[in-house]
Amino acid sequence: MRKYNFAREYSPYPGPRTENIGPFSGARFKKEVLDPQFASNVPIEIDVSGIRLSFGPSFMSEAFGKCAEQYTKKRLFEIVRVPENDDPRNKRFKELLKEYADRATKK
């Protein structure tokens, strides 16, 4: 399993939907970080405890919602993991992940 510190390795400020709107976008995160993990079938544990800005709806739907749509919700939770600790940001991130995966796959 790959351990990934979001704030250190990507940005402490999660960006907008796509890169043409602003840097550190959800689309870029999906392309550069999530897609290779799905391709190699190696789970990734994303630790978001260092972020300084909350994840916005645009970032979440573009990065994780799109993954749920493309690879199914089940595969998303197999590949993307969140550390089990007391950090409130990680807890909230886990909730958001579920919320946006549900929204993206709702029929």
Binding site: P12, Y13, G15, P16, I21, G22, P23, R52, L53
Partner: peptide, 9 residues
């Protein structure tokens, strides 16, 4: 002119 969100934080 870009969505740089550091100012929000």
């Amino acid at each position: 002119t870009k969505s740089v969100f550091q100012a929000v934080a």
